[in-house]
């Protein structure tokens, strides 16, 4: 009998060996790793095409060891539609922030979802525009102070935060829609499974899959990473409940 040290956890192959520009504690990094792990486990790295959004996740091409197309702000689902329609055998996903997807790109996500495009969408909800200095997003919580809502989001004038995962689940074209968080190891493992499921939905059934990931933006929330992480359970999950809102066969493939 000899004893050896077996590597039981390492960086995924689909992630490049580089340090990111993300702020300390920013969970864009966690969401990136989970997407890379899902591509590794489905064996699609060599035929994966990511479509990047505008925001703090704009450097997708620098961090994933896959092909990436840069989309104009909010237009990733439209770009992904074109990419997937001409390269049907490739695996195509968008990775978008909440300013990108739920504000400037609202039209593109709704129509791509409604058409039931065979793409996967990873939606990173950190309740603010991270890259540009923490402005109010459609996902900003009631009373949340941001640089453009210094006295707190006023729902009377600004409306209530949009629950995108629930909203999209109402569209016929959507096969899979869920919301996950990455604030503790248990939720992170569930998030990884959900992302893999959304990716599998495209690869095996040609379905549209959507995963909303609740994440922190410690910098623009003005919190240290541990406090920011606590805010996810204390304030975000009560308004944005975790769960699967839709899980059906793709449109036209009902049995």
């Amino acid at each position: 009998m000899t004893t050896v040290l077996k590597n039981v956890f390492d960086r995924p192959v689909s992630l490049k060996d580089v340090s990111t520009h993300f702020c300390p504690g920013c969970q864009h990094g966690t969401a990136h790793r989970l997407c890379a792990e899902a591509m590794d486990s489905l064996g699609v790295q060599q035929r994966a095409i990511g479509v990047a959004s505008v925001g703090c996740s704009v450097f997708l091409y620098g961090y994933f060891d896959i092909d990436v197309v840069e989309a104009p702000h909010g237009r990733a689902p439209a770009v992904a539609t074109g990419v997937k329609r001409v390269r049907k055998d490739d695996f195509v996903f968008t990775y978008q922030g909440d300013g990108d997807l739920a504000a400037i790109g609202t039209s593109e996500i709704i129509h791509a979802a409604n058409r039931g495009e065979a793409i996967s969408v990873i939606f990173v909800n950190n309740t603010t525009y991270g890259m540009t200095g923490g402005q109010m997003a459609p996902t900003t919580l009631p009373q949340q102070q941001t640089s453009t809502s210094p006295t707190g989001r006023n729902v009377a004038s600004d409306g209530y935060p949009i629950r995108m995962a629930e909203l999209l689940s109402g569209l016929e074209g959507v096969s899979y829609s869920c919301r996950v968080a990455v604030n503790n190891p248990k939720n992170i493992m569930a998030a990884g499974k959900a992302i893999e499921k959304a990716f599998r939905c495209q690869v095996e059934q040609g379905g549209f899959g959507f995963v909303e990931v609740l994440t922190t933006c410690p910098t623009n929330w003005g919190m240290n990473p541990l406090k920011a992480n606590n805010r996810v359970a204390e304030e975000m999950i009560p308004y944005f409940p975790l769960g699967v809102f839709k899980d059906i066969a793709p449109m036209g493939q009902e049995v």
Partner: peptide, 14 residues
């Protein structure tokens, strides 16, 4: 798994 920067590698003695 918790690390946002994938900075930790884990080795198990088997």
């Amino acid at each position: 798994r918790m690390c946002p920067d994938a900075a930790i590698r884990v080795f198990k003695s088997v």
